[in-house]
Computed example of a mutant assay.
Amino acid sequence: MRRSASSPRRLTALGSLVIVGVLSFAACTPTPTPTPTQTTAAPTATPTPTPTGPALVPDGSAEDNLPLFAQVVNTVAATDARAQGRAYIDALVAAGFPKAQMQVTNDLTTVGNPADSIQFSVKWTGECLVGQVGPSTPAPTALVLPLVPGDTCLIGQTRPIDW
């Protein structure tokens, strides 16, 4: 039997087609996913966020709440509203202090000049958180002081907190 010279090429070409067909079929067949192995890793603890600063202590004393009060005073004192009593009252309310327990002095003198200092306070559990700022005060001040006669925190005329 005589072989033609093209026979090995036909076999090679045919073999190539078979290999391409097998590879194409293999590409369409889903590959098995390995089964996960069980691990005995310890559970990871979720980190608890730490507070970024002092917080209001509703059942605490005035002394317990002085850090938050002082932070609010210092924050407002560092702004352009540092000579406005309302800015301190609003910031203290935003921090959780009760507006109904607050007092503030006037920002202006009786002749319309800026006050040398302004005071503001929060009556808290029989004591007072008192702040003072202004040109005559070297730095913002925050203190715990006793109530004054009349069960208030500030002496003298204060302005109504009616906003």
Rank of each mutant, 00 (worst) to 15 (best):
S7C: 09
S7Q: 12
P8G: 08
P8A: 05
R9I: 11
L11M: 08
T12C: 15
A13C: 14
L14D: 06
L14M: 13
G15I: 07
G15V: 08
G15C: 12
G15S: 15
G15H: 10
G21A: 15
G21F: 04
S24G: 14
F25H: 13
F25T: 13
A26E: 06
T29N: 10
P30K: 07
T31E: 11
T33Y: 07
T35D: 13
T37K: 10
T37G: 13
Q38T: 10
A41S: 12
T44D: 06
A45P: 05
T48K: 12
P49A: 13
T50G: 12
T52G: 13
G53P: 06
P54H: 03
L56N: 02
P58W: 00
D59E: 12
D64T: 08
P67E: 05
P67H: 07
F69V: 01
A70L: 09
Q71P: 05
V72R: 02
V72D: 05
V73H: 02
V73C: 03
V76Y: 01
V76H: 03
A77W: 00
T79R: 08
A83Q: 10
D90N: 11
L92F: 03
L92R: 01
N106V: 11
D107I: 11
D107G: 09
T109R: 01
T109Q: 04
I118H: 01
V122C: 03
V122W: 00
T125C: 01
T125H: 09
G126I: 09
L129C: 04
G131Q: 02
V133F: 01
V133Q: 02
V133P: 00
G134E: 03
P135H: 13
P138W: 06
L143G: 07
V144D: 00
V148E: 15
G150S: 08
G150D: 11
C153H: 03
